[in-house]
């Protein structure tokens, strides 16, 4: 393939810019993302409002930037929660084995029998609509695959000879863990989570679109698409801009995930 060097550079730069935008969003929004201005409804793209305004006259660029924190920020947060729950359970399960392992694995089996999306919908049904509840719902669905991945990594590494040798030489379990097994776990988890974050973003946006996630007037990308739906024929940018924002961010995360997978040379899942 040609241009792998420039491709990678471009990808890294894009990721840096995206992350910077995410953190700087509150400081660089040109307008208040929640401030309605009825006199300026459905403005097309112009000098004052670079991406135009929505049906309440709110500045679209400001809402997109602020919405990144909801869509991308919350997704990242969910991934962190998932890792914090999934990795320790996976390690415990893999190291201890026995009855604890069996119980954890039965639980993950039960979760995995059902499609992510349906469980997330049902859970947010139980908890009620709202961003916080959606976070809990998605985290509940997602932790199982990480616990399983980490567990299988620990088990397969545990059986390798060098671990036995290290243990025979008197290294404590903790030491063996941190020195030898940890790096393997990190690699696998990193790949899976970059491939997953795109899916989580899509999930948040989709569930927000049908009203189960972010509640108006919060500027979440999926919710923005739902908000503006009645006005698409008058102001197509209300449809195009938030949609492209989602596609772009997910595309970048998928590309990064693919590269990571090649780099760490892991096959998907277990």
């Amino acid at each position: 393939m040609k241009g792998i060097g420039t491709g990678r550079l471009l990808l890294v730069l894009t990721v840096i810019v995206l992350v910077a935008l995410l953190f700087l969003a509150p400081y660089i929004t040109p307008h208040d993302p929640l401030e309605a201005d009825p006199g300026n409804r459905l403005q097309p793209m112009n000098g004052e409002h670079l991406l135009g305004t929505d049906h309440l006259g709110r500045d679209l660029l400001s809402r997109i930037l602020e919405g990144a924190q909801a869509t991308v920020g919350i997704s990242t947060l969910i991934m962190l929660i998932v890792l914090v729950i999934g990795i320790p359970i996976g390690i415990l399960s893999g190291l201890l084995g026995g009855i604890i392992d069996r119980i954890f694995m039965r639980i993950t089996d039960a979760f995995m029998a059902f499609p992510d999306f349906i469980v997330a919908i049902v859970l947010s049904g139980l908890l009620g609509p709202g961003m916080m509840n959606l976070m809990i719902a998605i985290a509940t669905v997602k932790w199982t695959s990480y616990a399983r991945l980490v567990r299988s990594t620990v088990i397969s590494e545990k059986q390798k000879n060098y671990i036995l040798v290290a243990e025979l030489n008197g290294a404590s379990t903790l030491r063996v863990m941190s020195k030898h097994i940890w790096p393997h776990i990190i690699g696998h988890v990193l790949v899976l989570s970059t491939l997953d974050i795109g899916k989580v973003i899509l999930m948040i946006a989709s569930l927000s679109y049908i009203g189960l996630g972010a509640q108006p007037p919060a500027p979440e990308w999926g919710a923005m698409l739902n908000d503006g739906r009645a006005y698409f024929h008058l102001a197509p940018h209300l449809m195009v801009v938030p949609g492209l924002a989602i596609v772009f961010v997910v595309l970048v995360s998928n590309l990064v995930g693919d590269r990571m997978r090649d780099y760490y040379d892991v096959r998907s899942g277990e």
Partner: peptide, 11 residues
């Protein structure tokens, strides 16, 4: 893998 189905539907 990157386009949300609901947005594709909207388009």
């Amino acid at each position: 893998a990157s386009i949300p189905s609901f947005w594709l539907g909207l388009l």
